[in-house]
Design a protein around this nucleic acid. Structure first.
Length: 727
DNA sequence: AGCACGCCGACT
DNA sequence: GTCGGCGTGCTC
């Protein structure tokens, strides 16, 4: 008798045994098959990960699988091995990992819909476009797209919303759009610019190790042309019959990268994988990669789980970006799993960035990774922006927070007809609403955090849980009517700038102003085409975008990163500053960066002036070594959350008591509340584990996790976070 | 995690 | 008398 051992999406660290389905007589069930099985009262999709001759479960309790879901080929062995590795490393049940790694559509039993390979506009469609009322925005967008480039794959078309997909169906029904085969691209590939010496050296080094595992840190300053290196490497890998995986932090933040790749690779060859894509298409793209039809996969962190049987190159762009670490459920690092995948496939992995994470930098310094440096901007004559520090103690800013130097610099920039970017990493109007008489401050009822004043909508918002309430007229504790917004957010800064620079067009870009679909792209387009003079923005504006008109960058209020309780504060601050500084003067005009600070002599700012990442990293690594922080130790945390802090702490104390013996070089700390101790009405605390050895930490965690599952923790939710970023 | 079963308060 | 609250127990 053959027993199928099946991974199911339940939070229990075990497999479930089933008899084969009736269909097995005709065709045996292979490992990697998706199957539909009865589970209690439910029907679940599972994946066969092992077969066995017999089961420890008594025969009378064994049930038969209903059948194999044959709309996908079996999941390949390399993919199951990846899932096993992630399950063991991140201490999660295999079933849960497998189901987190599958595209959502393949977690459900309904067969996939075949999608048209491509769509083309018909003559009727051309006629319709001419007479279409302008309020039919979705239809117009689809027809206009196809009128300029037909045929187009579903991937290329604006189909992000249900309404857009409904519009496509309607147009197909009306005969305005028809399915067709995708024509191979016949036009010659776009002429590429020659590589600089540094780009060529990086390219050669990676190509030289194409048949074995090697991790590379591609350390290239903003504008040094990392994308061109990725592109050449990808073309080379595809030419030699290999598949390529490219991970980016957020696809809509790197539109140039996607556009560059789309211009070179035919649509059949290059697929994108992000959570924004429609489920059915996402699954089809995933399968195209698994069957080898797709040769290049470009996507966000979730794309690291794409099965790629002929993987020959892995690229992680902006490797330091925190979005590669999933912060809930399976808390994996896509960057670290990308390195695992290259190792398993025996191919190179390129981690590219201007500001490496200290972990990666240390790996390069210690020789585990090879360092490839591109210290110059690729465009001839382009130089890095000059950074100037404005000492707020020597030159106190005026009441609205801007020093004279900054005001004059913005004036001069506007007079030259250029754009200024003012960076403030705090959205809303003011971060605190407080009472002048008694000191009360508006706090979130569900979180240990202040509510942020949003003046435009007359609301207080919690930036952690999304709670919204009205602005009180009087102080709820003392009745005083004199409630004052304290501090500065982007909305207040926007108002200040409008007042200070009458006539200048001020554009605020943050997650509030870009909430509506498509607003972000509209705004970046407005900036590029010069329809704004002063840009006010958060982090969102600092990443990846090339704004050729921006020659001045002003940075306000970043000192908090220097004195943060989180040891990663300075690292993040330097990365953020270097990133936003990189927005200044990318084209033929030199850029200038003004940083307003109370601590101009701080070594971090001194390194920033010189754009000297190695100097910053050396100092930061030394501090980490002295204090005993990563990358010199490896960390994991056990977190618990509950209605009351007491319950969470009680669980953590029990957890510590039931921990296996601590090996040499391991530390288990006392439970402490998390930095944000109360979030969305739950109290949160954690225990930190440190070890000088990764493998020692791994085997400790594995034993501990088993013990933890045995603890009766009714009212407590807990998880282990390996290599945590959040405290 | 679901989804049962199971034993105590306010409704047609 | 039932409908339904969520405590606790199981799923091959």
């Amino acid at each position: 008798m053959t027993i199928l051992r099946i991974a199911l999406d339940v939070p229990l660290p075990q497999l479930y045994d089933y008899r084969e389905p009736p269909s097995a007589k005709a065709r045996p069930v292979e490992i990697g098959c998706r199957v539909l099985v009865p589970f209690g009262r439910r029907r679940l999709v599972g994946v066969v990960v092992e077969t066995a001759r017999e089961s420890e479960i008594p025969a009378e309790r064994l049930r038969s699988a209903y059948g194999v879901l044959s709309d996908t080929p079996p999941l390949p062995g390399h993919w199951l091995a990846l899932a096993r590795f992630a399950a063991a490393y991140y201490q999660r049940p295999l079933g849960e990992v497998i189901h987190a790694a599958l595209p959502p559509r393949l977690r459900r039993p309904e067969p996939l819909k075949a999608e048209a390979e491509a769509w083309a506009i018909t003559d009727a469609g051309q006629a319709l476009l001419a007479s279409l009322p302008s309020r039919r925005t979705h239809r117009r967008a689809l027809l206009e797209h196809l009128a300029t480039s037909s045929p187009a794959t579903p991937n290329d078309l604006p189909l992000a919303t249900d309404a857009a997909r409904a519009a496509l169906r309607a147009l197909v029904a009306e005969g305005a759009i028809a399915a067709c085969d995708l024509m191979p691209i016949t036009s010659a590939p776009q002429e590429r610019v020659p590589l600089t010496d540094a780009q060529q050296a990086a390219f050669d080094a990676v190509v030289a190790s194409r048949d074995r595992f090697q991790a590379f840190l591609l350390h290239g300053v903003t504008g040094s042309g990392k994308t061109e290196v990725y592109l050449r490497l990808a073309s080379e890998a595809v030419r030699s019959g290999r598949q390529v995986l490219i991970l980016v932090p957020e696809i809509n933040l790197t539109p140039q990268l996607e556009a560059t790749f789309r211009a070179v690779f035919p649509a059949q060859t290059l697929v994108t994988l992000t959570s924004a894509a429609a489920d059915n298409i996402r699954a089809l793209n995933w399968i195209a990669a698994m069957t080898g039809r797709a040769r290049v996969v470009l996507g966000t962190r979730l794309a690291v789980f794409t099965p790629l049987p002929e993987l020959g190159l892995v690229v992680v762009d902006e490797e330091q970006d925190a979005s590669f670490k999933q912060q809930e459920g399976l808390r994996y690092s896509a960057r670290d799993l990308a390195v695992y995948r290259a190792h398993a496939a025996g191919c190179p992995v390129v981690l590219g960035t201007a500001t490496p994470s200290l972990e990666t930098w240390w790996n390069a310094q210690s020789g585990r990774y090879r360092l490839l440096s591109m210290p110059e901007r690729a465009r001839a004559g382009a130089v890095l922006p000059a950074v100037r520090l404005i000492d707020t103690r020597a030159e106190p800013p005026s009441k609205d927070g801007l020093s004279d130097t900054i005001v004059r610099a913005i004036e001069a920039c506007l007079a030259r007809g250029e754009q200024a970017l003012v960076f403030l990493n705090r959205r809303g109007y003011a971060p605190v609403l407080a009472c002048n008489a008694c000191g009360w401050a508006a706090g979130c009822v569900r979180c240990a955090a202040h509510l942020v004043v949003h003046l435009g909508e007359r609301r207080l918002r919690c930036h952690h849980c999304g709670h919204v309430e009205g602005i009180p007229r009087v102080c709820p504790t003392c009745g005083n009517v004199d409630l004052m917004p304290f501090g500065r957010g982007t909305q207040k800064l926007e108002a200040t700038l409008i007042e200070r620079f009458p006539g200048a067009r001020v554009l605020r870009v943050d997650s509030d102003s870009t909430r509506a679909k498509g607003r972000f792209n509209e705004m970046t387009e407005a900036i590029r085409s010069g329809r704004a003079d002063i840009l006010v923005g958060t982090q969102m504006l600092a990443k990846g975008h090339d704004f050729p008109g921006v020659t001045l960058v002003v940075v306000l209020n970043t000192d908090a990163g220097l004195v943060s309780s989180d040891y990663r504060g300075p690292e993040r601050l330097f990365q953020q500053l270097e990133q936003v500084a990189g927005r200044a003067g990318r084209a033929d005009r030199p850029g200038e960066v003004l940083v307003q600070t109370r601590f101009p002599r701080h070594p971090l700012y001194q390194a920033l002036i010189e754009h000297d990442y190695p100097r910053f990293a050396a100092a930061a690594l030394e501090e980490r070594q002295v204090a005993g922080f990563p990358p010199f130790v490896h960390e994991a945390v056990l977190r618990a959350e509950s209605e009351t802090l007491e319950h969470a702490n009680a669980f953590l104390r029990t957890a510590i008591r039931s921990a296996p013996p601590r090996p040499e070089g391991m530390h288990l700390y006392d439970p402490v509340p998390m930095t944000l101790a109360r979030l969305a009405g739950r109290e949160r605390a954690q225990v930190l584990v440190q070890s000088s050895s990764r493998s020692v930490l791994q085997s400790f965690l594995q034993q501990w996790a088993t013990a933890l599952h045995a603890i009766n923790a009714r009212d407590v939710r807990w998880h282990i976070d390996v290599d945590p970023l959040e405290f």
